[in-house]
Simulated assay, not measured.
Amino acid sequence: MLTTSEEDYLKALYTLTEWDDTEVSTGVLADQLGLSPASVTSMIQKLAGKGLVSHVPRKTVALSPSGRREALRMVRRHRLIETFLRDELGYGWDEVHDEAEALEHTVSDRFINALDARLGHPQHDPHGDAIPSADGTLPVSEAIRLDRFSGDRAIIDRISDEDPEFLRRAAIQGLVPGALIRLPHQLNFIEASLIWVRNAHSK
């Protein structure tokens, strides 16, 4: 049985590498969680002792296969709850993240599976992020960040939920998953780095 903090660490490690295949240091993880490097190092040592992460002291930390399974279990909870809050309770897509952060630790896997069925087994959350299946599988995405895209037309796949204010502006501009965006766009570098797209000309 994992603690809430342990679940948060594993989920944070997963989300840091989900869209950018980069190594994660304890310092980067500390920034993501808003904690001191010393606190993060202590928890990473505990997770390593449970076989949930691999850790090179003063360098990198990565999920082990069992750690990835636990992380995906939490990601599944989070994204299904976000979808429920939007579809069933009328929350805005800029409001669901913080609520899901609190609720994901309080419900059972049975509840989450029932929620999944109630929602019709959605494939993506309100921001376009794929929802892991009950067995932890995820569809492969070929989306890339908009600031790295070189085509002339793109379809939005997902938008990062880390900035609620940007989500509100994006919704007003029609920048939502599934929408067509033409280049050159009028977004600044930071905004473009929060959007992932695929080529509109590809099938």
Rank of each mutant, 00 (worst) to 15 (best):
G90Q: 02
L63H: 00
T60V: 08
P57H: 01
T17H: 10
I81C: 02
R79L: 09
D116A: 13
H78S: 02
L47T: 00
A71R: 02
L29P: 06
H97F: 14
H78C: 15
K46Q: 04
L47E: 00
L85Y: 07
P57W: 00
H127P: 08
R110K: 10
R68Q: 08
D116E: 02
K46N: 02
R76M: 12
D109H: 07
P126Y: 13
L29W: 12
A48K: 01
A114Q: 14
P126L: 11
P122L: 06
N113C: 14
D21W: 14
V61E: 03
L103A: 11
R68W: 08
R110I: 13
I44Y: 05
A117I: 14
A100N: 08
V96I: 15
V53D: 01
T41A: 11
G49K: 00
G67I: 00
D31R: 13
A48H: 07
R79K: 10
Y91E: 06
D116G: 06
V28W: 02
F111W: 09
H124Y: 14
P57L: 08
L119Y: 13
D31H: 15
E18G: 07
A71I: 09
D21Q: 15
K50E: 09
P122A: 10
L119P: 02
S54G: 06
R73V: 15
E101L: 15
V24S: 11
Q123V: 13
D98F: 15
D20S: 15
V24F: 01
V75L: 04
F84H: 13
V56P: 04
D94H: 13
H121N: 15
L80K: 09
T17C: 10
E99G: 11
H121A: 10
E104K: 03
H97M: 14
M43C: 04
D129I: 10
E70P: 12
R68F: 05
A100G: 08
R73T: 04
P37S: 12
T60F: 00
R86D: 08
I44G: 03
R76Y: 06
P122R: 09
I112A: 12
I81N: 05
R76P: 04
L119C: 03
P122H: 12
I112G: 10
T83K: 10
L89N: 06
G92R: 03
T26P: 02
